[in-house]
Design a protein around this nucleic acid. Sequence first.
DNA 1: TAGATAAAGGTCAGGAAAGGTCAAAGACCA
DNA 2: TGGTCTTTGACCTTTCCTGACCTTTATCTA
Lengths: 152, 152
Amino acid sequence: MPSLTEQIETWLKEQLIRSRENILEIKRGELAQEFDCVPSQVNYVLETRFTVERGYLVQSRRGGRGYIRIIKLEMDLPERLRHLRDSIGPSISQGRAEGILLHLAEEGLLNRREKRVLQAAISRDNLKVDLPLRDMIRARLLKAMLLALLGE
Amino acid sequence: MPSLTEQIETWLKEQLIRSRENILEIKRGELAQEFDCVPSQVNYVLETRFTVERGYLVQSRRGGRGYIRIIKLEMDLPERLRHLRDSIGPSISQGRAEGILLHLAEEGLLNRREKRVLQAAISRDNLKVDLPLRDMIRARLLKAMLLALLGE
DNA sequence: TAGATAAAGGTCAGGAAAGGTCAAAGACCA
DNA sequence: TGGTCTTTGACCTTTCCTGACCTTTATCTA
């Protein structure tokens, strides 16, 4: 049985696909009711699963007629690579790096094998270097590998 | 009377066979209860009996709805990986690493894209770390990436 | 139209539910 | 009796979920 978080994540992504659009608008309260949980659970899902690294933008408005809007980002490859390079920067945590991989994989830019390889290369367990340096090596490797893979 | 470790090992392997699949998912806590032992005993069994050496891959996740997943590798792979691991050793030069990649590519175990990624990851220009350490990181990464790639 | 009220969504800390690590004690065997 | 393999338990980290309390926005009403 998948966790609540996973169920909500899946549901939202399905809605996005089913609607054939890149925008989905929901009511936090209604969604929470649907899944029989507290509203802040929805925030948790959004914060952990719909981040920019993973290719989503979340906007919202409070008050009467409030809403939460989830936008799936789409860019062409060259733009994407530039953007990736910038967002990786000189140093990157494992968590953020994994978000990027997930995102690329979901878009079909990385197949399962490739994702696994990259994943292995950025894992702290494999890098085994102390912290400020580790995140810097990871950033360099990730950028180089993505360039090798995506940038003909 | 076989040791606890052996009992658990046997039980897990039986489950793997019985399920007719190469993947088995368990809860550490439940298993420990079943065998009336501390949970960390399960880790010990996994560490000593379900290693890559012996043809297994173990994945896990913590937190709510956590799990431990044991994956049985294809028949001839463990042998292959053992050999690779030995030939890489604890430290490897860029030249020798490239030789290995070339060899694997020739054998068709690596396609062009994959080779490019690995190549990028082991390049001294991307690692950018001073020398004794660089070759050690390269060795760890190469082994981990190949394992990720070949260990379905 | 200013202020009250209702109707959203946001934040954050805490607790629960996993699994991980490590060192020390115990058991077994050569 | 020394060394290796097992077993245990204390403590740690990660992930998920909840609830109390806060802020923002729209709408209604005097």
